[in-house]
Amino acid sequence: MLEARLEQANLLKKVVDAIKDLVQDCNFDCNDSGIALQAMDNSHVALVSMMLKSESFSPFRCDRNIALGINLTSLTKVLRAAQNEDILTLKAEDAPDVVNLVFESAESDRISEYDIKLMDIDQEHLGIPETEYAATISMPSAEFQRICRDLMALSESVSIECSKEGVKFACQGDIGSGSVTLRSHTNVDKPEMNVEIDLTEPVSLTFSLKYLVGFCKASSLSGQVKLCLSNEVPLLVEYALANNSYLRFYLAPKIGD
């Protein structure tokens, strides 16, 4: 059986909120290392990969591999009943029909309990190769969100060019063009404001802004976001969570002429 207790419901609320517009029905794969999710959007352009390590829960118990097929719209409805600060416990039997969610208020004696019916989801699972990326950029997640939103007002696509000079986000649209360039930057007092560019070779790739703006819904999960790029491979956008847990998005590039 599965029993996983989260100190704050907020974490799951934010994760689900960040992915629910991209993917609808997902398997939450539970085993003794934690709870994982991998799902592609309908157009097979973007992929979300979540890992909530067992260390992110206290306690965490899962004796067998259990796949919880959950509709994220249903999960969102139930999670709305949880206060951000509530303690959240997920429970399921070994061959479950439902997943049980318990929300406990730390301040009062209120306990709420919900069951969500599970679905049989036959999901394609992709093997993501280990990649040595040519460029890795760490930057404030709010900055990345702002750049994507600003450029989407002009164009559907953004080119991300990374060189020794820095990283340039550029777009061209009907009304004109725009770009934002960031250079490495260290803020000793506020490390969350750092921009770090790690480059082994120059990279230039084009991506759909619609997807990037969608990924940025995860910004509240982490002060920093990491962008990993190599020419002609999907972009990795990573929001690191506590205890080595993470929320990652992969986006296929736009290629050729």
Binding site: H125, P129, S157, S208, P234, Y250, A252, K254
Partner: peptide
């Protein structure tokens, strides 16, 4: 204009 690729081109099915 460049065309949107899909992930199947890069990631294998398991």
């Amino acid at each position: 204009p460049p065309k949107q690729a899909t992930l199947g081109k890069f990631f294998g099915r398991t």
